[in-house]
Every structure is written in C-alpha cells, then in structure tokens.
C-alpha cells in the first residue's frame, strides 16, 4: 500500500512541477488579415504600423509596412500589436517613411518620438486597431489557419474583424478516433468471446 501511495504522489506532483518548466500543448497557426474594400479608396495609402499610444516591442520588430492589394503583412514579430492607418496619397512621403520601414531602434525613445511626429505630419488616420499576426492554438485544435477580414470605413476605428474564417483540419482527429475505436472493438470482442 505504501508503494501505491508513493506512486500516486508522483502521479500528482509531476504535472505540477513540469507545468512551469515547459510550454507543451500549443502550436502557432497561420493568421491572415485582409482588407476587403481597399479598392474603394484609390486616393489613399494604407499602412500597418504600431499604434500611436502603444510603443510595443520597437519599430525594428514592428516597422511600417504598406498594405498591398488588401493583404496586411504577417511578417512581424509575434508580440507586435498593430494598427492600420490611411494617408491621403498627396500627403504620403515614402522617403521619410523609409526610415520607419527599416528602423534599427538604436535609440528607442528617439525613434518613437520621430515616428509619432511623422505620423502626425502626414495626417495618418487610424482605421483598424488590435491587429495580431501571431496566434497559438491548443494541439488538440483542428484549426490550421485564421483569416480575418475587415471592411474599411474612414469614419470608424474598427477593433474587431468583420468576419473571421477558420480553416479546419479534421483528418488527424478522424484518424486518431478511428484507431481508438478499432482497438476498443477488438477488446470488446475478446472479452465477449471469452465469456461465451
């Protein structure tokens, strides 16, 4: 009985110890963020960039990127919290913007201060907030991809996508359940035959 007690203790303690050490059970999925009606705004440039009020990890990790054909780049560091800004084409200064598209963040505070001034100078208008390009799901999740779509309205700041489409993969789950069911069926057959 003592041995059983010790094993029960081990069984209880090991997961608690391990939970702090490792991060099992989750994996990243592809996140695609799209603007569906960018074609309606031919006189504007759309950019993804850090929000004005939140400095985030730094402009070298979360630089300004131009939104092309409605696709918001997901080539960002996973902790970037992004916004979408619109700028009238005649105010857009690609030369000056380049500085924040390839920022090195040598002086974090100075770079941000310049970034804020730049955004103000070109009258950048925030139209979408809280865009994330990285997401993890549980290993048991069947979701493989998440596509968030936004329809721009220049008079609003959207904080959530208009539509979230999730690509789901059922095959793995079906295979696992099938193997399990076949094994159970054989076990039951053996037990029933033995009784007869």
């Amino acid at each position: 009985m003592k041995i059983i007690g010790i094993f029960i203790m081990i069984l209880l303690i090991i997961p608690l110890i391990s939970a702090d050490v490792i991060l099992p059970g989750h994996h990243p999925i592809t996140v695609i963020n799209k603007i569906t009606n960018i074609i309606d705004y031919p006189n504007y440039v759309f950019i993804s960039a850090p929000p004005i009020e939140n400095q985030g990890p730094g402009l070298n990790m979360c630089p300004i990127k131009i939104v092309e054909e409605g696709i918001i780049s997901n080539q960002y560091y996973k902790l970037c919290d992004l916004s979408i800004f619109v700028i009238e084409k005649d105010k857009w200064d690609i030369g000056e913007a380049q500085k924040f598209m390839e920022a090195e963040d040598v002086d974090y505070e100075k770079t941000y201060s310049e970034y804020f001034s730049f955004m103000e100078s070109i009258s950048a208008k925030e139209v979408i907030k809280n865009i994330h390009t990285y997401k993890t799901v549980s290993d048991s999740s069947t979701v493989t991809e998440e596509i968030n779509t936004y329809a721009i309205d220049l008079s609003k700041v959207k904080i959530e996508p208009d539509n979230v489409k999730k690509e789901i993969e059922y095959l793995k789950t079906i295979i696992y359940v099938l193997i399990s069911l076949i094994s159970l069926a054989i076990i039951i057959t053996i037990l029933v035959k033995r009784k007869k």
Partner: peptide, 21 residues
Amino acid sequence: LLINGFTWPLATRFSTLESIF
C-alpha cells in the same frame, strides 16, 4: 497493443496543457 491502441490516440489528440493531468 490493444489497450494502448485505445487510450493513446485519444489521450494524445485531446490532451492540452490545461487538461493533461
């Protein structure tokens, strides 16, 4: 083989960090 064939696939597929214990 049979016992593990029954428990292992389900445990592997449906356990998460939160539910592993």
